[in-house]
C-alpha cells in the first residue's frame, strides 16, 4: 500500500538521544520489513537454484574437474585456463557457434513472421475464432518430446507421411531423409523451431493489435488508404516495439535451446548447437570443467549479441 506521508522514519533519531525503550516502528518501516519478508522466499529460491549455480559455473570453468574426481575437488581448488583453451581449440567449436547463430536467427525470424501473419488473420471476429486461436497455440503448449517425435515420424524416409505423399503427389524420386542429411537437417530444425514458437509471437502481437484504437484505421480508410497501406503505415509502426522485444526474447531463448535439437537430431548432420555440445561434454565425456567453460563461452557470446542488438534497437525495446 502506498501512503503519502513523508518519510519520518529517520529524522527524529538524529535530534534526540536514543530513548531507553524501543519506539514503535513507523508505518513506512513496517511496510519495508513486510516487503522484505514476503519477497524473501522468492529471492532465496532464485539465488540458491539460479544465482549460485551461475557463479559456480564460472568457477568450474577455470578448474580441472571431472565427474570421477568430483569428490576430491574443493570450491577453490587451483585455477587454470586449460578448459577455456581446450574449448576454443577443440575441432568444431567455430562451426558449432555458427550453426547456433544460424539456428537462432532463423528460428527467431521464422517464428515472428509466422506469428505476425497468424495474428493478422484472426484479428477480426469470425465464426469459430476462439477454436482457431486455441488450435494455433497447440505447438507451443504440447510437450516437446511428443512434438519432436511426431515430426521425426512424419519426416521418416520409410514410414513418414511427408515422404509418402511427396513421392506420390510431387514426384520425388527418392525419399528425403530430412533430419539425417547435412543439406536439409539444419533447415528442418529451423522450420520446426518456427513452427513450435510462432504461437508465442502470435499471443503478444495479437494482444498488441487488439489495443490499436479502431479510429486510427477508420480515419486512414476514410482518407482512401487501401488495406495494405493501412497495414504498412498504421499497424506496422504500432507493432514495431513488440516485434523488437520479441526479437530479443526469442533470440535469447533459441540461442539457449537444448531440447529441440537434441531430440530431433541429437546434434548430428551439422545441427550441433552449443547447448547440445555442453551436454555432450557433461555426460558423454564427463568433463565438467570443459562443459562449464563451454557454457560460459555460450553465455558470453549471448550477452555480446544481446548488447549489440540493444544498441541498434534499444530505444524501441524500452
Amino acid at each position: 500500500m502506498t501512503t503519502t506521508a513523508p518519510d519520518t522514519g529517520r529524522s527524529p533519531t538524529g535530534e534526540r538521544p536514543a530513548p531507553p525503550k524501543r519506539r514503535p516502528l513507523t508505518l513506512r518501516r513496517r511496510e519495508s520489513r513486510a516487503g522484505l519478508a514476503l519477497v524473501a522466499p522468492t529471492l532465496l529460491v532464485t539465488i540458491a537454484v539460479i544465482g549460485i549455480p551461475i557463479v559456480w559455473t564460472v568457477v568450474l570453468a577455470f578448474q580441472r574437474v571431472r565427474l570421477a574426481t568430483l569428490r576430491k575437488t574443493g570450491l577453490f581448488g587451483e585455477f587454470t585456463m586449460d578448459n577455456i583453451d581446450r574449448v576454443l581449440h577443440t575441432p568444431g567449436f567455430a562451426e558449432t557457434l555458427w550453426v547456433t547463430l544460424l539456428y537462432s536467427i532463423g528460428g527467431t525470424v521464422g517464428s515472428i513472421v509466422l506469428g505476425l501473419v497468424a495474428a493478422l488473420v484472426v484479428r477480426r471476429p469470425f465464426r469459430g475464432r476462439t477454436l482457431v486461436r486455441a488450435s494455433m497455440l497447440l505447438p507451443y503448449v504440447a510437450p516437446v518430446v511428443a512434438v519432436t517425435f511426431v515430426w521425426q515420424v512424419m519426416l521418416d524416409p520409410q514410414l513418414g507421411i511427408v515422404n509418402a505423399w511427396g513421392q506420390r503427389l510431387l514426384g520425388w524420386d527418392a525419399p528425403v531423409p530430412f533430419l539425417s542429411q547435412e543439406s536439409t537437417a539444419l533447415a528442418t530444425v529451423i522450420v520446426f523451431e518456427a513452427w513450435r514458437y510462432f504461437p508465442f509471437a502470435f499471443l503478444f502481437l495479437l494482444a498488441r493489435l487488439q489495443a490499436v484504437p479502431g479510429e486510427l484505421e477508420e480515419a486512414a480508410r476514410v482518407d482512401g488508404a487501401t488495406p495494405t497501406q493501412r497495414f504498412r503505415h498504421i499497424l506496422l509502426p504500432q507493432l514495431l516495439p513488440v516485434i523488437a522485444l520479441l526479437g530479443v526474447l526469442r533470440f535469447i531463448m533459441t540461442f539457449n535451446k537444448f531440447d529441440d535439437v537434441y531430440l530431433l537430431t541429437g546434434g548430428a548432420a551439422g545441427t550441433e548447437v552449443v547447448s547440445v555440445r555442453v551436454y555432450e561434454f557433461l555426460t558423454a565425456r564427463t568433463d565438467i570443467g570443459a562443459a562449464a567453460a563451454q557454457a560460459v563461452v555460450l553465455a558470453v557470446v549471448l550477452i555480446v549479441f544481446v548488447l549489440i542488438y540493444l544498441r541498434f534497437f534499444g530505444r524501441r525495446v524500452s
Binding site: P53, I54, W56, N256, S275, V278, Y279, A292, A295, A299
Partner: peptide, 10 residues
C-alpha cells in the same frame, strides 16, 4: 538470459 544448461552443470 542464462541458458538452463549453464545452471544445469553446477
Amino acid at each position: 538470459l542464462f541458458p538452463s544448461i549453464v545452471i544445469a552443470i553446477p
